[in-house]
Design a protein around this nucleic acid. Sequence first.
DNA 1: TATTGTTATACTCTATAACTATA
DNA 2: TATAGTTATAGAGTATAACAATA
Lengths: 156, 156
Amino acid sequence: MTPANTDAPTPLESDFGWALRALSMAFTNDGNAAVAHLPSGARGYLVLVAVAEGQARSQLDLARRLTIDKTAMTYLLDALEEQGLVRRKPDPTDRRARSVTITPKGQRALQRARERLAVTESTVLGALAADEAAAFRSLLSRVAQGLEQRDDQDGS
Amino acid sequence: MTPANTDAPTPLESDFGWALRALSMAFTNDGNAAVAHLPSGARGYLVLVAVAEGQARSQLDLARRLTIDKTAMTYLLDALEEQGLVRRKPDPTDRRARSVTITPKGQRALQRARERLAVTESTVLGALAADEAAAFRSLLSRVAQGLEQRDDQDGS
DNA sequence: TATTGTTATACTCTATAACTATA
DNA sequence: TATAGTTATAGAGTATAACAATA
């Protein structure tokens, strides 16, 4: 016979999924305000970061790197280009492809977004001491990079 | 004159928002499979956890605790009740309110989901050593609880 | 035949409003 | 007048399919 379960039920706060969702929602909410000056908000910001890297050879490259559908990438870039933050130009080596570069105006907008997002990060991680927050960032970054490698292997 | 910027552009991988999004997407994808036996998937799971706690006095209580709209809570509970995982009964002290309890079948489904999600968690945090993963979980939990308190204060 | 990019369409999720029944 | 719960509607975000141009 198993003894009667007199334990308290598992609290919601100990649930990994709940905690991850809470953090994501908070960062999304606060972060949207931080990047409100960018077209398409948070997604526009991510595209801008990836374009600024200068690694992606084509829109499809960008889409894959960001795990954004290529059809969404089209109108995200439409919006960014319309405001003069990025520029599309034909790739001379492949006339189907278009290379995307960031403009000086885009650089400034990106810099401003980064400064604001740094504040958002600190706010959202407010429950942690400075060294703990640094540790959390580091661990999160390693987790995400691990997932990126995993997914890259799956794809090819 | 500022010197020419010869630094490499900031890599996407160092972006907090990118990393958080990558983890959330991976956990959502893998986690959806882990809770596919529950109606409404991940959201149904969260509701079931909160119901199992037995703290919430009403559907509205549940909705607030989970940051889910009360209109969504209605059909989430509809789906859970239809499969016999939870039960709604009128609150004798307030005839507007309905208290929600988990059924034995719901307990079993919840237990199964927790076991599967534990595997998902390990997989998703695969880049970390065991002690690092534990540290990450602990920090994430504290962050989320801090946000919960912040939002509770905002609301009242 | 496969790939890049675009457009059009459909679907899901969420937010809003309106309504009822109680308090 | 405010609250608990439900329903209906509309909007944003995303996915799917089809297409034109090029490889």
